[in-house]
Amino acid sequence: MAELDIKDIIREENLVYKKSTLLTDNVMHYCPGCTHGVVHKLVAEVIEEMGIQEQTVGVSPVGCSVFAYNYIDIDWSEAAHGRAPAVATAIKRLMPDKYVFTYQGDGDLASIGAAEILHACNRGEDIVVIFINNAIYGMTGGQMAPTTLVGMPTATCPYGRDISLNGYPLKMTELVAQLPGTCFVTRQSAQSAAAVRKCKKAIRKAFENQNKKKGTSFIEVVATCNSGWKMNPVKANEWMEKHMFPFYPLGDLKDCEKSPAEEYNKYMEE
C-alpha cells in the first residue's frame, strides 16, 4: 500500500467535520473541558443544518452561559436570572413563526427560575428548553445548586450536601415530564462521541417540534463543572458517569406524538 502523506489527506474534498459557521470566532470564556462548549456547538449545528438562523431567537440565562450570545450567531435576549422561560414565552407568542429556545443552567432553571419554567412548560409554550445540569453554581464559584447530589461538597456545603440541612436534589426533568404541556422530555449527556450524537439528535427533534405546535420540548444535559468539582475534565466525566448518571438516568422520559391539547382531551374523554 502506498504511503499517504498527511498533506494529501488534509484537503477540502476530504473534509468530514468542521466548526459550524454559526459559531462565532469569539474564544469561549468557559473553562477547559466545559460541557457548555459542546452543547453550544450542537445548538449551532442544528440551527445551521435546519437553515433557521433568521427564524431563531435564543434566550440566555444568568450563570456561566450568560454570554451564550457571544458564541452563536443569532439574535438573543439575555434574561434576568431564572426568567428565560417568561422572556421566551413572550417572544414566541408575539412571533409565533420563530424558533425560540432558552438555554439555562441548574441554578437558573431549577432554583430561582423554578416558577417560570414550570408554568411555561405547563402552558405548553412552543419553545425548546435546554437545561444544563452540572449540579453546581459555576459562575459564582461552585456553590450548592438544587441539583447538587447528597454528600457532594460545594462551596456552600463544604462537608457535602446534607439532607437535613439542604433538602433533596431536585429532579426537574421528571417534574416537567408530569406536565401535560410538555411534548418531549429527555435527559442527555455529552461526555462521549456517542452521547454527543444522541444529544444532537434530541436537540434537533426538539427544534423540529416547534414547527408542529406540539408544546414544550425540554432537554436536560447532565454535565460536568470540572472547575467547580475541582477535577480535571477527564476525571470529571468519569465522576459524572459514576455518580450523576445513577441519580439522573439518561434517556427519553416523554415523547408524545400528539400535541398536549390533543393528549389532554383524550385523557379527559377516557
Binding site: V59, A79, A80, R83, A86, T89, A90, I91, R93, E116
Partner: peptide, 23 residues
C-alpha cells in the same frame, strides 16, 4: 396577545422579551 402570567415577576420578564422584539 393577552396573557395571564404566573406572577408579576414573569409578567415583566414577558414584557422584556416582547419589547426586545420591537413589539
Amino acid at each position: 396577545v393577552v396573557l395571564q402570567a404566573e406572577s408579576e415577576v414573569a409578567s415583566i420578564n414577558m414584557v422584556y422579551g416582547g419589547a426586545g422584539c420591537g413589539k
